[in-house]
Amino acid sequence: MNNWGYAFEPADLCTGLPVGAVAEVERLAAELAALGADADTVGRPEDRVGGLRQFTLFEGRGFFSYLVDRHHEDIVIVQVVWFG
Score class of each variant (00 low, 15 high):
Met1Asp: 00
Asn2Lys: 07
Asn2Ser: 04
Asn3Val: 05
Asn3Ser: 06
Trp4Thr: 01
Trp4Lys: 09
Trp4Phe: 14
Gly5Leu: 11
Gly5Asn: 07
Ala7Met: 03
Phe8Arg: 14
Pro10Asp: 06
Pro10Asn: 12
Pro10Met: 09
Pro10Leu: 12
Ala11Asn: 09
Leu13Cys: 00
Leu13Ala: 06
Cys14Tyr: 00
Cys14Ala: 04
Thr15Cys: 04
Thr15Tyr: 01
Thr15Leu: 01
Gly16Leu: 01
Leu17Asn: 09
Leu17Ile: 04
Leu17His: 08
Pro18Glu: 04
Pro18Trp: 00
Val19Glu: 06
Gly20Ala: 04
Ala21Asp: 04
Ala21Ser: 02
Ala23Gln: 09
Ala23Lys: 11
Glu24Val: 02
Glu24Asp: 08
Glu24Met: 05
Glu24Trp: 05
Val25Leu: 00
Val25Glu: 04
Val25Ser: 00
Glu26Pro: 03
Glu26Thr: 04
Glu26Arg: 14
Glu26Asn: 05
Arg27Tyr: 13
Ala29Arg: 01
Ala30Ile: 03
Glu31Tyr: 02
Glu31Val: 07
Ala33Ile: 09
Ala34Cys: 03
Ala34Asn: 07
Leu35Trp: 11
Leu35Gln: 06
Leu35Ala: 06
Leu35Val: 02
Gly36Asp: 05
Gly36Tyr: 11
Ala37Trp: 00
Asp38Met: 07
Asp38Gln: 13
Thr41Asp: 15
Gly43Met: 02
Gly43Phe: 11
Gly43Leu: 07
Gly43Lys: 00
Arg44Gly: 07
Pro45Glu: 03
Pro45Phe: 10
Pro45Asp: 03
Glu46Gln: 08
Asp47Asn: 14
Arg48Met: 12
Val49Lys: 08
Gly50Trp: 11
Gly51Met: 07
Leu52Tyr: 08
Leu52Pro: 00
Arg53Gly: 04
Arg53Tyr: 03
Arg53Met: 05
Gln54Tyr: 11
Phe55Asn: 09
Phe55Ile: 04
Thr56Asp: 15
Thr56Phe: 03
Leu57Met: 06
Leu57Phe: 10
Leu57Ser: 11
Leu57Cys: 07
Phe58Met: 05
Phe58Val: 00
Phe58Lys: 09
Glu59Gln: 13
Gly60His: 12
Gly60Ser: 15
Arg61Cys: 08
Arg61Glu: 01
Arg61Phe: 04
Gly62Thr: 08
Gly62Trp: 14
Phe63His: 15
Phe63Glu: 06
Phe64Leu: 12
Phe64Trp: 12
Phe64Met: 12
Ser65Lys: 12
Ser65Val: 08
Ser65Tyr: 13
Tyr66Cys: 10
Tyr66Pro: 13
Asp69Gly: 12
Asp69His: 15
Asp69Lys: 13
Arg70Cys: 08
Arg70Pro: 02
His71Met: 14
His71Cys: 13
His72Ala: 15
His72Asn: 15
Glu73Arg: 10
Asp74Phe: 14
Ile75Phe: 06
Ile75Gly: 10
Ile75Val: 13
Val76Leu: 09
Val76Arg: 01
Ile77Gln: 08
Ile77Cys: 08
Ile77Val: 15
Gln79Pro: 00
Val80Lys: 00
Val80Ala: 04
Phe83Arg: 14
Phe83Trp: 11
Phe83Met: 03
Gly84Thr: 12
